[in-house]
Amino acid sequence: MVDDLRKYLNHLLEKVNGLHCILITDRDGVPLVRAVTERAPPLALRPNFISTFGMATDQASKLGLGRNKTIISMYSSYQVVQMSKLPLVITFIGSDNCNTGHILSLESQIEPFLKDLEVVVADAP
């Protein structure tokens, strides 16, 4: 199952110009499935970077605008799009000029595969 999903994520990586990696992790940043190209910044793949999203989304949900779903962080040479699919988190890392709208539209294509993974994370002690 995970191999099929990884293949599918690699296929999605090729479809979006400038997209370097797609990671599916749990709330703490522990990677479950990852599709990575050699251009992805190694530091951004570490759990201590990815897990900061958990705190950020919790704080963003307190702004009175409803529950936070997505955070887009633009850096000088990278962009990071993180989606809350609790108990899972999807992280996309791309170049700064990568098509953000195209990355956001991948959500609906990945979503059907998350149900099985959610069960795995929910069952973990």
Binding site: N17, N97, T100, G101, H102, I103, S108
Partner: peptide, 26 residues
């Protein structure tokens, strides 16, 4: 816009298709 984010939409056009439309034109 060039990032594939919707600036305006009306009628049958869905906001979520902005990224794909920019990708097609690219």
């Amino acid at each position: 816009d060039p990032q594939g984010l919707c600036l305006a939409s009306k009628g049958a056009a869905h906001v979520d298709s902005a990224g794909i439309i920019v990708a097609i034109s690219e």
